[in-house]
Amino acid sequence: MKYNELYISRKTFNKKDGLMGQYQIFILCSLGVLTLIVVILTFNFKRLLNLMNRMIISMFFGMNMGLTVGLLLGSTFQGNLFYSTILSIAIALLAASLSSISFGIMPILEGLMAGLMGGMMGAMLGEMMKIEQSIFIIRIFLFLSISTVFLFPLLQNEKSQRIKNKVWLIKPVVLTCFIILFIVMETNLAQNQFNTLSKSSQSHAHHIENTSKNVKSDSKVISIQAQNMNYSQKEIIVENNQPVTLILENKDQIEHDIEINLPIRDNKSLKKHHGTNENSVHLHVKPKSTEQINFTPIASGIYEFICTIPGYKESGMVGQFIVNKSVAF
């Protein structure tokens, strides 16, 4: 495996790109406007809908709103599922309660439960997907959320479905024009988002290519990803007296490090890492960053590597670093 292939993974936002881009802000504002429209419709149609149809509308809007917001925030704040889940649930519950407030207690409860479930599921889906994949799914649930508007005339009582005058026909035409305009704007912003991701990925690959020049030809390259309070590798096996290049890629929005207490040969690259001495390897990585360190183990044995940040070891950031005796031929 080539060195730079160890780094290329799912595309995520780093701090320099900004967590909330234009696309995310546009979708959130659109959902806010949609919620306001649904609130107005609930006041106008509440006397034209029976209890069952009110509950259907509340559940439909709450679920799709929760899924849309959850996917959006889950993919934006990847690596911090708790934060994205809580924020998604809060927004979905607020939208569901406002849109059902004039429908009565039962529709409000239906909307709140649907928003709660939608926010949780959406955040989990967004955490697991690449951003370009999540945008495709966001479009689907965004369309379903907008479709709530069409439920009001479809579900109203039969006695109220008669068209009083021809002016009423203008409404769906105007609504269709607004939807087309919205789709055009959303598509342009999504394309800009893809372009930003592509440039970020190319810049990251260029950085990796430059960094790879520091790796010795006889060095064993070990790549570890830190994500969701876990290391991607729990067991590392190397040979005694063999140069090692340890790469730690932090995919989370919080800081991580790795420390191995073992005898090593003095190496100039170790001196820049705080806390590193002749019997310890310590590598600290900032959020959404990658660092590497070069060292040579000089004693065989089984050593433990951990994240030294308080509580992280107990959460699962621990593993074994095994140094085998070198075989002489």
Rank of each mutant, 00 (worst) to 15 (best):
M1D: 14
K2W: 00
S9E: 15
R10T: 08
T12L: 09
K15Q: 13
K16A: 02
K16L: 11
Q24R: 07
I27H: 06
L31Y: 11
V33S: 11
T35R: 06
T35M: 12
I37V: 14
V39D: 06
L41F: 14
R47I: 05
N50C: 03
N50G: 08
N50A: 08
L51P: 00
R54K: 15
I57C: 13
S58N: 09
G62W: 09
G62A: 11
G62Y: 12
N64R: 07
M65D: 00
T68Y: 00
V69F: 01
N80M: 08
Y83Q: 08
I86L: 14
I86C: 10
L87I: 13
S88E: 11
A92R: 04
A95Q: 06
A96M: 08
L98S: 11
L98P: 00
S100D: 03
S100N: 04
S102H: 05
G104T: 03
M106R: 01
M106F: 14
I108G: 13
L109N: 01
G111C: 06
G111W: 00
L112H: 00
M113I: 05
M117Q: 02
M120E: 01
M120T: 09
G122H: 07
L125Q: 09
M129F: 12
K130H: 06
Q133G: 13
Q133L: 07
S134Q: 10
I137M: 13
F141Y: 03
S147G: 12
T148L: 06
F150L: 13
L151H: 10
N157I: 05
N157L: 15
R162M: 14
K164I: 15
K166W: 11
V167R: 13
L169G: 00
L169K: 11
P172R: 01
V173D: 00
L175E: 12
L175Q: 08
L189Q: 07
Q193I: 00
Q193V: 05
L197T: 04
L197G: 04
S198R: 12
S198H: 08
S201A: 15
S203E: 15
A205T: 07
S212W: 04
K213R: 10
N214D: 12
V215S: 05
S219D: 14
Q227Y: 11
N228C: 04
M229F: 15
Y231I: 01
S232E: 11
I237E: 14
V238M: 10
N240P: 02
N240Q: 15
Q242E: 14
P243S: 02
N250E: 12
N250V: 12
Q253L: 15
E255C: 01
H256V: 08
E259R: 14
I260M: 13
N261F: 08
N261C: 07
D266E: 15
L270C: 09
K271D: 04
H273M: 02
V281A: 09
V285M: 03
K288V: 10
K288F: 13
N294G: 02
P297D: 10
P297V: 06
S300N: 09
F305M: 03
F305N: 01
F305G: 08
T308L: 06
G311E: 13
K313C: 04
G316T: 11
F321E: 13
F321V: 09
V323Q: 05
F329Y: 14
